[in-house]
Amino acid sequence: MSQFLHLKDKFGNDVRFGNTGEVRVAPLPHIDDYSALLDRIRDVRLHPDDVIVVGFPKSGNNWTHHMASMLQAGTTDIPPMFGSNNFLFLEGSNDDLKLPPLDKPRVLLTHLPFRFLPRDVSEKKVKVVYVIRNPKDVFVSLWCHMSKVKFPLGYDGTWPQFFEVMLEQGFWYGDVFDYLKDWEKEISSHPGHPIYSCNFEDSKKDTVGQMEKLDQFLDTGRGRELCQAIVDTCQVDKMHLTRVQSDETFKDTWLWKDGVPSNSFYRKGMVGDWKNWFTVAQNEQFDQVYSTKMAGSTTTFVFE
């Protein structure tokens, strides 16, 4: 099996995925064998007090991970994420970029559906923080990211083309609507599992209040004062300086297209930016597809 699944979208643009055979993940060039990736992740050993932060790409996962890590550590110090022995993204870890050792609790990050998470998640009842964001802003945020990165991660088509592809079939991790409904089903099927659904829009509206709820869920007992301090540290404009400066991966020349600054990993982090991108026709098209694909869903979103 080849490392990447290489396809063409209906406009002739190159589209590449990490070729696991079951779920189309982001094509990270340092992963040599995607056919074995899911089995390796399923075998990852977890500390009982580990935390998994998960959500569809560009849903506020890194922001949430940033804050959850600080809560767990009880500090406002910068939480490194992509170090060679502190690589916290499950799909991107390998023999050279290792997960942190098992001797103390960690906050790990993934975009995988529940059924592909490590077995220890279920066996040890590891806490899961599930991040959701309104799909219109997800479309825009993912496009803005993929238009700035190089092969094999980048996408060279236009925004209208990307919109069509996302609406019709999805991209990394598949169709966003299927992803949301799959997680909704899994949460319903595991009523005894500690899963906290974290809404990006709610977090933006009342970040400290949502942090206090996360503090309670994680049983970290940090209190409002530290929650406030963490929120102040985790403003998007400050995260450009914290994680970008502390993690060399954000600066790697293989990642960004020429002329793209290394702080482009974090963009606006705002609610309703889709209105600056969607045409009236696109919005009507989205709403029609949304009403069909999300029929029966109990998940509601704030779009502005």
Rank of each mutant, 00 (worst) to 15 (best):
G221M: 00
L226N: 02
F139Y: 15
V271P: 12
H193I: 12
L255W: 04
F303D: 08
G12A: 04
Y179Q: 05
D182T: 09
W254Y: 11
H30C: 01
R267Y: 12
G18P: 06
Y34H: 08
S84L: 14
G170S: 00
M70Y: 06
A68L: 02
N19D: 12
S93I: 10
Y179E: 03
A229L: 03
D219I: 01
A68V: 15
E212S: 03
W183R: 06
D120N: 05
D137T: 01
W274P: 04
V51S: 07
R267A: 02
N276D: 14
A281W: 05
W172N: 12
L38G: 07
N13D: 10
N13E: 11
L153K: 00
E225I: 00
S122P: 00
K251C: 11
P101Q: 07
T158A: 09
R40W: 11
L142F: 14
M70A: 04
L214P: 01
R42Q: 14
F200W: 07
V44W: 01
G154A: 05
I41W: 13
S264G: 06
Y130R: 14
N134W: 11
K104L: 10
N13H: 09
S141V: 01
G269Q: 11
F200L: 03
V176T: 06
S69F: 02
D49W: 01
H6C: 10
V302D: 15
I132D: 02
Q235I: 06
I195R: 08
L102V: 15
D9G: 05
F114K: 03
L5Y: 09
D232L: 06
M67H: 02
T249L: 14
I31M: 02
E186K: 12
K58N: 08
L99R: 01
G83V: 00
G92S: 11
S203H: 10
M166K: 03
P152A: 12
V208S: 13
V53C: 07
D103H: 09
D9L: 07
V44G: 04
Y179T: 04
F265G: 02
W254R: 09
Y266T: 09
D175I: 04
R16P: 03
Y155C: 08
V244D: 07
V280C: 04
D237E: 15
E284R: 14
N62F: 06
V44M: 07
T76H: 01
K104F: 09
D9T: 04
T298F: 02
R115I: 06
R40I: 08
L5F: 11
H190C: 08
V208R: 10
V126E: 13
Q169K: 13
C144Y: 13
D287Q: 04
V129S: 03
P79A: 02
Q228G: 13
